[in-house]
């Protein structure tokens, strides 16, 4: 089973998220070792590969809050046969979307100019910084998403159930207590 050609290739990324879903993914603990017999990673924060190549499964954490998020998300959609939205932010916008009802400039001023303990008190304006959007959106408002795995974050057990269902060709199905939005 360790022949790389037979392994399912998986990419993951975190857009406007907190990496909590990735941490929860690591919470499947020693089952990771068994999982690595079945999958190999393409782009993920774990491999530090910068661009996503052709993959079987793409797992996206976080919503879309800036132009770079859209580029990454479209790259994932283009390269992944199955795209999975993981966590509240990817599915609803989540906590970052709480800024959706606040003017973006007001947000920036609050964070970069008025907040205490800052040096310079200016809003970052480097051309390399991605263009921020006025609203944060869930990823299914930008690309087609095949599966949703809710939770903030989904538990390690829920992630394990989801992945093992998917890898075994079953329609992923969570038990009642595994399905939660908080």
């Amino acid at each position: 089973m360790s022949d790389p050609k037979l392994k399912v290739r998986v990419a993951t990324c975190s857009l406007a998220g907190c990496f909590g879903c990735h941490m929860s993914f690591l919470d499947i603990d020693e089952r990771l070792l068994g999982l690595l017999e079945l999958i190999e990673f393409d782009r993920t924060p774990l491999t530090d590969i910068k661009h996503c190549g052709p993959c079987d499964v793409g797992i996206v954490e976080g919503g879309v809050c800036n132009a770079e998020n859209v580029h990454v998300l479209k790259e994932f959609r283009k390269n992944c046969k199955v795209l999975v939205a993981i966590g509240a932010c990817a599915i609803t916008g989540g906590i970052p979307a709480m800024r959706n009802n606040i003017d973006l400039w007001d947000c920036f001023q609050e964070v970069y100019q008025y907040e205490g303990g800052l040096e310079g008190h200016q809003v970052p304006n480097d051309p390399e910084l991605p263009l921020p959007f006025d609203k944060v959106h869930p990823i299914n408002e930008v690309v087609k998403v095949d599966y949703f795995l809710p939770g903030c974050p989904p538990s390690g057990d829920a992630i394990w159930r989801f992945l093992t269902d998917l890898l075994n060709g079953r329609e992923p199905k969570l038990d009642y207590e595994m399905l939660h939005y908080d």
């Binding site: 906590i95 709480m98 299914n140 939005y181 908080d182």
Partner: peptide, 26 residues
Amino acid sequence: NHICPSCEKSGNCQLQAVAYYLGMMS
């Protein structure tokens, strides 16, 4: 604007509970 992770009612909320009951994934 139902942002469950930020809501004190989460877990006691009937809107959320009905969604769980109906298997709402998104």
